[in-house]
Structure formats: structure tokens, C-alpha cells
Write a protein that binds this DNA or RNA. Structure first.
Length: 772
DNA sequence: CCGATT
DNA sequence: AACGGCTAATCGG
């Protein structure tokens, strides 16, 4: 099995030469290179009227870039039509002449003219990148740089490196450390960077991984290489690292030896309040990673203080990055195979794009014409079209015991399959009066499957298969790498299945269709409402429900046998009324739960696990001190049913805050800057904090997450907000943190338990238990 | 105090 | 550069 790592093309004799980089299984050679010369760039043009006449018109225009014209049959909204396939000499010619062709009289529109050449080739040649890839076969190296600022320049002082062959290095050019084996002192910065480049090549690395290398490590190194006269070639010989624009961001492309930045991968794969390397490491391995105050690095490094700590921190970054990569990469290998695109692109792709590539591949295989991406006007129109979304039940506020949670497995994907929801199946003429009619009145064909339902069926079937294999392999105690790959596959398939609905409602989607998206949501509301109704008709008390789930509480004490009985009876009753593609499942049984508002609740399971949704604990725009206190109160209430003790906890926190004992890191609030600062009509604390920081020389741009503290000086809250780095310990406004952070978070829980606001106010001011 | 903004 | 629903804090008239 050959594993395609990367693909690119270069121009030779004015023609494209495609270069495919394959893994060398034995690693006797670095990579196997295959070259393809005979793939020609092309696009389509749809005739207005006769195809033959249109062909003549194009011919007559005598575009020098065109080498061949042919009339071919393609499918458009289930109908076969004749279109012109326009073959050009060089990939750049597509963009050059598509508009000129579109301007011709007999041209309706051009199609598939915005698909990049190499990606087009991979689809047409039916290649499967990363086929058979796993962590064992691939050589994976991570690196990270530590830097200091010197006269407006960012200078790397350490490059740390770790690979899955066991090599670990921290190169620098200042300090020798014979007792730290991984440390190596180079003569100067140039030698250090060269050492790194050499090592990657000598180790015959297949994948380079970084944490935010796209936006930091690579740009910095590239700059330094330019200044120091170093040939920054890490991959294929003679090809320098390219910074590719990807929307707003950059991607650092190492041709032939793909660079995967795992920061965007982690952002997509995990739901965390923050995504620093330390946060992700903690979330994944439940272990703290060595961290230091980067601000002191320069001083320490120059003075020769804490050098061991700095070097250990540097290597810990590389180690951690590699460890995280080994966890997340398998899903990327699988996604790369599933959507038939190189891992470089896939790892930086949103789910909407991933689904789109999959659809494009399927469309090509079925001779279906790919819809165009919307232009600016079309996009603006789509943005205006809105539709009603999911149904959320107002919860029965307060504490409930014995909670049964049910949910629909893949609700939206199964609705799409069950009702054949696809842009091409709307208002078909083959199903007169026999359509699937959505609650919003849209008619979908019952006879011929649409592309998206078919894709989803494939995805769900593959997932069932992967999960079965996985179960079998785990039971047999099979190979760990294989188990990981199967798990990664089912994970990747789940991601894809769940994004199809959002994709149809995504304004930039090729297969966008508002009627489809709104019908899916409408059917979703109908199914969950009907299920809730059935539960109530059975005499159950539905305490909450959201989109695809419902929770019912049974106050009486229940044995395990009874729990099982209730669950099975209910599932059987509901499921026999549902279409075959749809199924209600038992998500779990919970001992107790507290419900605050829609989307905000906490549950404890019989095995003592706490599940919290929507409450402050889960949000980064609340200070750690408020979140931690809320969690402690929740635990005390749910497990011990002891509000007195909860009050004691709060009292202690308030005292600590007033005594100035709480460290700044527990008081930080994180809020993202979403647009240029001048565009804010309403300048919240984060905006004001950012503005002040800019005046003192800090850089802030849209997308940055501002970390700020509310200090003592100033009148409004915004006045008092300062970015971390401009605040001293102890300089915080204790009353703000008490009244605007800790107490609201805690009171939300207590109020839900029925304590009146008046009682709580007294509780807030005096911190006594009088009210209870 | 309340709607708008985030 | 997936969707909409929803809560809550803060600003600012």
C-alpha cells in the first residue's frame, strides 16, 4: 500500500509537472517521488442553447490558451445536459480565460473553474492521500522555538525538537549543559537553525508538527533564514517553505514533508475554554506541563539564571506537541483518506469544507456538475435568508432525582436520509403527490436518492462498520495502533456526518439550500416534540429537552432492574413509530440534577461524575475564582445536599478576595476581540483594556483573546479593566469579583433551588445563613 | 430603566 | 470562515 503524503506541481516547458511525494516504508530513501506530466487543466462551460454552436463560438474566439474543446454529457439537478469541456495548456490559464469564455454570447455560465489544479488531479486520478498511514509507519517530529525580542526583531534562542524515533534535542548558542543530555550548544544562531534543518532531513521525517507554527515558529524562522542567508528548505530539495494564505490566516507549507500545525486541529477537535499548549496538554493527559513566565526569559537567559528551567521548558514544549500530535493525527489521516485531499489541506480545513470536498469527489465520480461557489451578491442574499432552528424546552427549574436522558442518534443526518433531503430532490416530477413533505411544506423526491443523503448513508454505514470492528479488536486485545486508527476513523466519520446539515445552511457552500436546511430543522422540531408528547402521555415528567434530547425524572427510588425496564419499554414504544433511519437511544441515567435555565444545568451520575452544561464553569469569559466556587457549590448541593456548607465555601472565597489573597491568574477574564477596535459601538471591558494596552505599545488584532483584570482605579467596569501584564498582584477590585463574578455564579445555582432573591441578597451582603 | 451590543 | 437558540453582562442614552 502506497501512502501519498503530499502533492504539488511545478512548471516545466510551460506545462504543469505534478509531483507526488510518497512515504518510503523502509525509510531507506527519504521520500518516493512520482511525476505526472499528462494531466491537463480543464473547466466546463454550460451552453445557452446548442452545445455545438457554443463550441464553434469558443473556437472562433481563438483563445491561445485553449488546447482542446469537447462536448461532454454531465448531470445537473438530475438531468443530463451537454456542456463544453475546455482544456487549457497551463493551470494558470483557467483563471485567465474563464471570464472571457463567460462573456461569450452563447455561454450560460462556467463551472468547476475554481478548483485548484493539484486537488483537481487527486480527485480525477482517484488518489487516496494518507492511505494506510499510522503513527507507527510515519516518522513524526515536532519542534518549537523560544525567542527573545531584540531591537524590534524576534530572535530564536532555542530550537527544541522531539521525534517518535526517540530523538530529543534543545539546540541553543549560549549555554552548555553537560548534565542535560538533550541540550546541545551551537556556535551561533545560524549553526543552530542549520542543525535543526539537517536533523529533520537526516531523520527522514515524514510529518513535521508544531503548535501554532503557521503563525509563529515558521514565519519567525523564515525571516531569520532570509537575514542570515540560510536556505530554508525542510522538505523537497530546492523548494523553500511557502507561506500560503488561507483566508485570514497563513499556512506554512513544507513541500514533500507536510507540516501539520496541531493548534487549529485541537481547536476543532476539543471543546476547551482556552487552547494554550498547557491547557490542551492538561485536558488530554490530565497532567500539568512545565510552564514558565515567558516575560522573564530574556533577562534570565542573558544573566544565566534558571537556564536549566528554560531549557527543560523548551524541550517540554516539543515533547508535549509531539504527544498531542500522536493523539490527534490519526483522525487527520482518516479524514485525509475519506475526503481524498492532502493532509496539509485537511488539517487546516473546517468541517464545512471537508464535507464539500467529499461531495465534489462523489459528484465527479457520478458525472455530476459541481455547483459554483457563491459570488459576493449571492453570498449577501444567502446571508439574509434565515430560518427557524431547533426546539428547546424551558426546564423545570430546581433539583430533580433519577433522571433518564434519551437522545436521537445523529438526528439531523438521519432526517436527511429518512426524507431524502437534497437540493436536487426538491419538487421532483416523478413523485406526484407522493413526496416527503416537510413541516415547512417543501417536497422531496421519494424515488431517487440525492447526493447528500447518499453520502450520509455511506458515512453512517462506514461508521457502524468501524465501530463494530473496533469493538471486536478491543475485545480481542488487538494491536494498539490499529485500535487507535479505527477509533480515529469512526470519529472522523462522526464529524463529517454531523456537519452535513450545517453545510446546507452555510452561505458559502456550493450545495447551499435554505429550503433543505430549514426542512431538516423543522423535522427535527417535530420529532423531538412528538417524542416529548409521547413521554408525557405515558405519565412521565419531562424536565428538559434540547434539539435532539429529552430528560425525564422519576421521583421514586428505583432499582437497577426497574431503571432498565423503564428505559427499554420507552425506547420500544417510541422507536416502533419512527422511520427506519431514525432511532431514539438511551444516553444515560443520572442520580440527580439541577436545572437553571435553557441550556444550563448540571447532572451527577451514579458513578459520581459531574456533567455541567452552559454554566459559568464552562465559559472562558468568567474568572477562574467564580467558576471554581460555582463548581464547589454545585458539588456540595448535588452530592451532599448541603446548602449550609455551600454558603461556608462562598464565605471563605469572599474573605480571601477581600484580603487580597487571590492570585491574578484566578481573576483573569478572557474575551475575544472580533473586529478592529475602532469599529466597536459598544466598548466593553475587553475593548477598553486592549485600547489602553495598545497605547503602551502592545499589539492587538482581531481574533486575539484579551486577558484582563478589573482593577481598583477607574469608575465604570471598562475603565477599571487592564490587560494582564499591566496589573500588579493585589491591584484587583475585590468588590467587583465578589458582586459581579462569584455571587452571580453561585446565586444562579441557589436561586434555581428555590431560594428567593431577597434571601440571596442578604446572603450576598452579610454572608450569613439567616435567609436559609 | 431599558434596548442594543457583545 | 457549518447552522440557529439562548443567556447574561455591560454600555449608554
Amino acid at each position: 500500500m502506497e501512502t501519498l503524503l503530499d502533492a504539488t506541481y511545478r512548471t516545466e516547458d510551460e506545462k504543469a509537472l505534478i509531483q507526488l511525494f510518497y512515504l518510503s516504508d523502509t525509510h531507506l530513501e527519504d521520500k518516493k517521488l512520482k511525476e505526472v506530466r499528462n494531466f491537463e487543466p480543464y473547466f466546463y462551460a454550460v451552453p445557452r442553447g446548442s452545445a455545438q454552436e457554443f463550441l464553434e463560438e469558443i473556437k472562433a474566439a481563438k483563445f491561445p490558451q485553449i488546447t482542446r474543446l469537447e462536448i461532454v454529457k454531465r448531470i445537473e439537478l438530475r438531468r443530463e445536459i451537454e456542456v463544453i469541456r475546455i482544456v487549457v495548456k497551463h493551470p494558470s490559464h483557467v483563471a485567465e480565460i474563464r471570464e472571457r469564455v463567460a462573456e461569450l454570447k452563447k455561454c450560460e455560465e462556467t463551472r468547476e473553474d475554481d478548483i485548484r489544479f493539484v486537488q483537481r488531479y487527486i480527485i480525477d486520478a482517484d488518489l487516496t492521500p494518507m492511505n494506510g498511514a499510522d503513527n507507527k509507519k510515519l516518522r513524526i517530529a515536532s519542534f518549537d522555538i523560544e525567542t527573545i525580542n531584540e531591537r524590534d526583531k524576534i530572535i530564536p534562542i532555542i530550537i527544541s525538537y522531539a521525534d517518535n524515533l526517540g530523538l530529543r534535542k534543545a539546540w541553543n548558542y549560549k549555554h552548555e549543559r553537560h548534565d542535560l543530555k538533550f541540550v546541545e550548544k551551537c556556535p551561533d544562531e545560524k549553526a543552530m537553525i542549520n542543525k535543526f534543518i539537517e536533523t529533520v532531513k537526516n531523520q527522514k521525517i515524514d510529518l513535521i508538527v508544531t503548535y501554532n507554527g503557521d503563525n509563529y515558529d515558521f514565519p519567525v524562522l523564515k525571516d531569520r533564514c532570509k537575514e542570515l542567508g540560510i536556505d530554508f528548505t525542510l522538505g523537497a530539495e530546492g523548494i523553500e517553505i511557502k507561506m500560503e494564505r488561507r483566508g485570514m490566516d497563513m499556512g506554512a507549507r513544507v513541500i514533500g514533508r507536510p507540516h501539520i500545525d496541531i493548534y487549529p486541529v485541537c481547536r476543532r477537535m476539543f471543546s476547551l475554554p482556552r487552547y494554550t499548549l498547557e491547557d490542551v496538554h492538561l485536558a488530554l493527559f490530565d497532567e500539568e506541563k512545565l510552564d514558565i513566565e515567558v516575560e522573564h526569559m530574556h533577562k534570565w537567559w542573558d544573566a544565566g539564571e534558571n537556564v536549566d528551567t528554560i531549557l527543560s521548558y523548551a524541550i517540554a514544549d516539543a515533547d508535549s506537541c509531539l504527544a498531542i500530535a500522536l493523539e490527534v493525527l490519526p483522525t487527520e489521516y482518516e479524514l485525509s483518506q475519506l475526503i481524498h485531499q492532502p493532509i496539509f489541506e485537511v488539517s487546516r480545513m473546517g468541517t464545512g469544507n471537508a464535507i464539500e470536498w467529499l461531495l465534489m469527489k462523489m459528484a465527479h465520480d457520478k458525472n455530476i456538475l459541481v455547483p459554483q461557489k457563491p459570488g459576493d451578491t449571492e453570498y449577501a442574499t444567502r446571508r439574509m435568508e434565515s430560518y427557524e432552528g431547533a426546539y428547546v424546552v424551558e426546564p423545570e427549574k430546581g433539583i430533580h432525582d433519577n433522571i433518564f436522558v434519551f437522545d436521537f442518534r445523529s438526528l439531523y443526518p438521519s432526517i436527511i436520509i429518512a426524507h431524502n433531503i437534497d437540493p436536487s430532490t426538491i419538487n421532483c416530477d416523478c413523485c406526484e403527490k407522493e413526496w416527503h413533505i416537510s413541516p415547512t411544506g417543501i417536497k422531496f423526491c421519494k424515488k431517487k436518492k440525492g447526493l447528500i443523503p447518499e453520502l450520509l448513508e455511506d458515512i453512517l454505514n462506514s461508521r457502524v462498520k468501524a465501530k463494530l470492528e473496533l469493538k471486536k479488536l478491543v475485545a480481542e486485545g488487538g494491536d494498539k495502533t490499529k485500535i487507535k486508527m479505527l477509533d480515529a476513523r469512526q470519529q472522523a466519520l462522526k464529524i463529517l456526518a454531523n456537519s452535513a446539515y450545517g453545510y446546507m445552511g452555510f452561505s458559502r457552500a456550493r450545495w447551499y439550500n435554505n429550503d433543505c436546511a430549514s426542512s431538516v430543522a423543522a423535522w427535527g422540531r417535530e420529532y423531538i416534540k412528538n417524542t416529548i408528547k409521547s413521554a408525557q402521555d405515558e405519565g412521565f415528567r419531562v424536565v428538559y429537552g434540547d434539539t435532539d434530547s429529552l430528560m425525564m425524572a422519576i421521583p421514586e427510588k428505583l432499582t437497577d432492574v426497574q431503571i432498565n425496564q423503564i428505559k427499554n419499554d420507552f425506547l420500544t414504544k417510541i422507536n416502533k413509530k419512527l422511520p427506519p433511519a431514525m432511532q431514539l437511544e438511551f444516553e444515560g441515567f443520572y442520580t440527580r440534577g439541577v436545572f437553571v435555565t435553557k441550556k444550563r444545568y448540571a447532572l451527577i451520575s451514579p458513578d459520581k461524575k459531574l456533567t455541567v452544561k452552559g454554566l459559568e464553569i464552562r465559559r472562558r469569559d468568567w474568572a477562574e475564582i467564580a467558576k471554581r466556587t460555582q463548581e464547589q457549590v454545585l458539588n456540595t448541593i448535588l452530592w451532599e445536599k448541603n446548602p449550609q456548607k455551600a454558603a461556608e465555601i462562598v464565605k471563605e472565597v469572599v474573605n480571601d478576595l477581600r484580603a487580597g489573597k487571590v492570585p491574578l491568574k484566578d481573576l483573569l477574564i478572557y474575551t475575544q476581540i472580533t473586529k478592529p477596535l475602532g469599529e466597536y459601538e459598544n466598548t466593553g471591558p475587553h475593548v477598553e483594556a486592549a485600547k489602553k494596552a495598545i497605547k503602551r505599545g502592545k499589539m492587538v488584532k482581531p481574533g486575539d483573546v484579551i486577558q484582563y483584570v478589573i482593577t481598583k482605579k477607574g469608575s465604570s467596569i471598562s475603565d477599571k479593566a487592564e490587560m494582564i501584564g499591566f496589573v500588579n498582584e493585589n491591584d484587583y477590585d475585590a468588590e467587583y469579583y465578589i458582586n459581579n463574578q462569584v455571587l452571580p455564579a453561585v446565586m444562579r445555582i441557589l436561586e434555581a433551588l428555590g431560594y428567593q432573591e431577597e434571601e440571596l441578597k442578604g446572603f450576598g451582603r452579610q454572608m450569613t445563613l439567616g435567609g436559609f
